[in-house]
Nucleic acid binder design. Sequence first.
DNA 1: TTGTTTACTTACTACTAAGTAAGTATATTT
DNA 2: AAATATACTTACTTAGTAGTAAGTAAACAA
Lengths: 185, 185
Amino acid sequence: MSETKDKIVALADQLVRTKGFNAFSYKDISAPLEIKNAAIHYHFPAKADLGVEVVDQEMIKFHTQTNRWKNLPENEQLKKLTDVFRRHSREGNICLMGSLAPDFDTLEPAMQAKVQEMAAGIVNWLTQCLEQGRKKKLIHFKGAANARALIIISNLQASLLLSRVMGPSAFRLIAEQLMDDLCHK
Amino acid sequence: MSETKDKIVALADQLVRTKGFNAFSYKDISAPLEIKNAAIHYHFPAKADLGVEVVDQEMIKFHTQTNRWKNLPENEQLKKLTDVFRRHSREGNICLMGSLAPDFDTLEPAMQAKVQEMAAGIVNWLTQCLEQGRKKKLIHFKGAANARALIIISNLQASLLLSRVMGPSAFRLIAEQLMDDLCHK
DNA sequence: TTGTTTACTTACTACTAAGTAAGTATATTT
DNA sequence: AAATATACTTACTTAGTAGTAAGTAAACAA
C-alpha cells in the first residue's frame, strides 16, 4: 500500500467514528491530506470500497490484539477489551459498530456483509473468552455465554455513544460497574 | 398543529430512526406526502428546527407513557420499558438516542441541547425506578442505581443497533437476560 | 367588503456530493 | 532506449442538498 493510501484509510477511519460514514465527504479527506478528490477515487473507485477497507483494517487490528492477549487469564483479557474502548472514549471516538449500525440499511451490500462479519467476529471471541473464564472461575455470570457476550458488547458500544452526549463520566461508570459485575464475587 | 405539520414530524421521526438525521433529505418527506419541499420549510425554517420538534415529541411521548405506568410495581415498569424497545425492534427501528448520538458532533447546538435533555430525562427516570424497586425488593442489582440505569439504557439502545446488523434474535437474547438479571433471585 | 393570516406552490439559488475521462510526471521493466 | 505501470492532477459532469423569494388560493377577522 502506498503512503497516501494508508493516510486515506486512517483518516476515513477517524471520520467514520466522528461524523459517520454517510456524513463525511471526500473533501474531508482530500483537504487535510492536500490531494484532489480524484486521488481518493484512484485508490478506492467508490466510497463503499473505502468503507470496506476501513472495516477490514479494523478486523485485522482486532485479531492482532486478541492474539497478543491469548495467554492472559480471561478476566485480564476482558480488562484489555474495556481498555480499548476506554482509549476511544478519551479520544471522543465511537466504535465502528456504533457508527455503522445506525446507517446499516443505507450501506452497500458489500459493506453490510463486512459489518456483519465484524460483529460476528467480536461476539464470537467474547463468547469464547467468557466461557473459558467461567470454567476457570475467573469470570462470574448467569445464563448463556452468548447472551452475556451480546450484553457486554452492547454496553461498551453504547457507553461510547452515551459519553458523546452525557460526557466521559458515562463511560467510566458503565465500564467500572461492568467489570465489577463480572469479576468480583 | 396542522395535519401536514403532524405528518411531516411523524415521517421525520421514522426517517431519523431508519436513515439517520443527516442522511435523510427533504425529498424523503415531500415525495411521500405529495407536497413541495418549500412546504416543509414553511413549518420548519431549518432542518434543525424539524429535528428539535422530533426530539420534543419523543420526550412528550416518554413522559406520557411513564406517567401511565407510575402506579405499577417497579419491576413491571421496567418490563414496560423493555416492551417499548421490543416494539421498535420488531419494526426495525432504532431508538432516537441510538440514531442521534453518533451524529451528535454534527448537530446544531439547539438540537444537541435537546438530545442531552432527552438522555438525562430517561436516565433520571430509570434511576428513580431502580432505586424504588430495590427498596421494595422487586429489583435486585449491585452498585449505584445511577450506574445501573446507564448500563440498562446502554443495553436497550445498543441491542436495537446490534439487531439491525445481527438480526432480531440479538434483541431477544439481550432483553431476556437483562430482565432475568434484575428480577429473578 | 376589505385586509390579513394560514398554508401552501412555483421557480429558483448557491452549494456540495460522488464519480469520471483524459492528461502528466515519475519510476520500473524489457 | 522504448514501453509500461504507478500515482496522481486538471477539469469536468450529474445529481443531488438545504434553503429562499415571490406568488396564490382559501379561510377568517374587522
